[in-house]
Every structure is written in C-alpha cells, then in structure tokens.
Design a protein around this nucleic acid. Structure first.
Lengths: 221, 221
DNA sequence: TGTTGTGAAGGCGTTCACAGCC
DNA sequence: GGCTGTGAACGCCTTCACAACA
C-alpha cells in the first residue's frame, strides 16, 4: 500500500459515517458527488481518496453503499474489536468512558487506571479502577492495543513512556502537551484549548469559517 | 493582515503554551531552534509563522520570552475574557465545564443549556442549567460570543442553526457530525472517534507515528 | 448518458539557504 | 559570530479535465 495522507484517512472515517447513515436509510448506491456534498468536500476528492485503495465504484452508476461500507471498514481496520485502556479517571476520562460512539465502532475500554487512591477501587460500569502502578502488568496481561491518556499535562509523558515500554503501539492523548514517542508508535492528540484559541483568533481577526478537517486532530510525533 | 494558514494559527497556540512554561521558569530569551525543539517543529517553521505577524526577534539573540508571549496573546485575541455558553449538560458537557484550561486562557462558561428536563435546574458550580428553549434569549442577553456544542449528533445542526441565528459567530462542536454554518461564522469540530479510527488504520497497516497537528482539528465549514 | 478513475495542473504549506542585523 | 527574516525551491495535497466504460 502506497503512502496515504493523513487527511485522506480522516476523510475515510467521514465517508464511513455517512455510508452508515445512507445504509440505514436503505439507499443502495451513492455517487461521489452526493458523498462529497454530505461530507463537505468535493467529488474529485472523494474519488481520489478511494482510488488509493482500489476501484470500488461502477462508472455511470456510483458506489454500492453496503459494499463500500464494508470496504472502508476493512481499510480502517474496523472489522474487529480493539482492546483499549483508559489512563486517568477524572472528568474527561469519565466522559470518554461513557462515550457510546467508541464502543459502537469496536473500541472496547477494558481497563481504567488512576493515580489517585480515592479513585482506585471505584466500580465503573462493572470495571474496577486500577492503580496506575499496575499499568504495565495489566496492559500486557489484558492484551491492550490502544491506550487513551486523560491525565494532567505534567503526568502525560511519564504515562506515555510506560505505555510504550509495555508494548502498546497506539495512543490517543487528551493532555494539552507535546509528547514524544518512538517512530513505531502512533500518537494522536486531541487538544481542545488549541481549538478554542483558533476560534479566538478567527473572531478577533474577522476570519471566515473553520479550519481543515472535522474531528480532532493528530499529533506530530 | 494577510492570509494565515490554519496550521500556523494552531502552532501559535503551541508556541504560546511553551512560552508560558519558559516564562514561569524565568527564561528571558529563546531561539527559534529551541522553540521548535520543544514544539516538535522546525526552526524555519517557527520563524516563518511569526513573520506573518511582525518581526519580534533580535538577530543574533533570539526572542524575548515575555515580549513574544504578550505578542502571541494579542495575535490570538487572548488579552481579554470570552463569554462562552455550553449546550449539552451530559457527560462530555460536564467534563468540558470542569476543564480548567479553558478558564485559564480566558474562556468563561457563563451559561449551560440542556434539553432534558431532569438536567434543567441543576446547579453547576453556581450556574443553573437552563432549558434549551431559552437559548436565543440568553445568548443575546448574556452577550455570548462562543458556543460549545456537546449534544447528540442528531440534535447538533438544529442547535447550531439557532445559535447562528442568535448572532454567535464562533462555535466549537463536539458532536460527531458534519455541520453547516454560514461563512461569517467560524466552526471548529473535535471528533474523537475519527482520531481513534486513524489509530486503527495506522495499527492495521503498520504505519508510522501520528498525523499532522497536535490537538483537535478544525472543521471545514 | 452518467459517473468513475486518474494523469496533469495548480495551489499551498514547508523547507532551504542566505542576506541582513544585533 | 550568531540568529533572525524571507524569497525561492520544493513537495504534497487538491482540483481539473477527460478518457474509459457500465
């Protein structure tokens, strides 16, 4: 597989969501034009994005919704369950833990950690909050593949180092700080303050509408 | 002011955070090289980003930390308070409401709305959750400039339309759906599921580290 | 006829390299 | 001498335009 840009992958997620809706509505085919309209991009972009992975459409007809849906799920690696751990049982961690969309897409949070002994031992929907001391052991024992980091900025790099040492190769970070990971690990960060500051900038300078893509953004490693 | 790319603005936020740290540590000057190292970018990029807004450095010396800090705050429109409303008092709304970083950067949540009558009337840290019916009236009466949308995807466009109609020009969206706003309104979206799917893609295809930016990502309008 | 798939062109952000100052 | 500021080169992503074909 060639090199696919990050923005292309982000748009695939987007197309996937739209296809899910179309599929529920019983639509059987969709054109790149329609997909683009619903996704806020262009028809050429849609076709180019998809063409990186194969030729899924029929000329003159468009794309078969259920087929394209399945293809995209496969491309994105969503045809399976992912075992996820959450580090940080504070406000944000709690919100993420309850976020239904994650589970719906196959991301299952199977362990929760916190450094605060008042949080450790609490039951969260059938899961007991574990002490962060046990991090490496549990990550390995549970076969965790993705870790969500929702700890204070000062603690984030330390957690990430331990997570990486335990062999985890995918990290989603919510701490507002730059993190270093080795090249074999994929790190994505969500930084809400940066977005708000972007709004502040736009409002202060009479700018036009939003930035690039939808959704949160990735991190430079 | 010329056209400044979205990624430049995002990096300014980043530099600002780093400068805050340097300033607290009592550092008086910093080079583009050092700023780049801490921010995970390049020295040329730092200088280019800053050069869009003026010439803040001294050749041979670098940048004066307190000065550059103040300049960036001014550029980003952070030398003031922003009045913010939160729509959606669920898990995510609650986490955002308690997020200290927002207030620290001058974003003050002064109103909270929800459609669920069981939530309406609750007291949140001295603020009573208001019925979403009162949205337009309160936004105008309170002089709200930025609205954070944390409602289910199906409800988001409706909320956004009303918010726009009430004259608000900055929206931060957490609902995982594409939203349309008129060009004079700036919309940024945070989509955590897209990030997780990006991880899934990377892990499934043996990719290297993260995507572009840190922090959440903006939305194409 | 209608819509895809794709090489070519275009636009934009990043990197380079060096002149300009402190 | 050291580091910034910046025009030019570069590379990548997006857009164009059209041949291919159901």
């Amino acid at each position: 597989m060639k090199k696919v840009s990050d923005s292309t992958v982000t748009r695939l997620s987007l197309y996937l969501r739209i296809l899910n809706e179309l599929n529920e509505q019983g639509l059987s085919t969709v054109s790149s034009e329609e997909l683009a309209r619903r996704g806020g991009t262009t028809a050429a972009q849609v076709r180019k994005d998809l063409s990186f992975f194969g030729t899924f459409g029929k000329r003159g007809l468009g794309y078969a919704v259920p087929d394209l849906l399945e293809r995209l799920r496969a491309i994105l690696g969503l045809g399976r369950h992912w075992r996820v751990a959450l580090v940080g049982a504070g406000k944000i961690g709690s919100a993420l833990f309850g976020y239904q969309d994650f589970r719906r897409q196959g991301f299952h949070i199977v362990a929760v950690f916190d450094a605060d002994e008042r949080k450790v031992g609490q039951w969260w929907n059938g899961l007991q909050v574990l002490p962060v001391e046990d991090l490496e052991d549990v990550l390995r024992a549970e076969g965790i593949e993705i870790v969500i980091v929702a700890v204070p900025a000062e603690a984030a790099q330390g957690v990430v180092d331990r997570v990486v040492a335990a062999g985890v190769r995918g990290i989603l970070n919510f701490a507002p700080t730059k993190l270093d990971v080795p090249p074999e690990v994929t790190l994505k960060s969500v930084n809400m303050t940066v977005e708000l500051e972007g709004l502040s900038y736009a409002l202060s300078n009479g700018e036009r509408s939003g930035g690039k893509r939808r959704g949160t953004r990735a991190d430079r490693s």
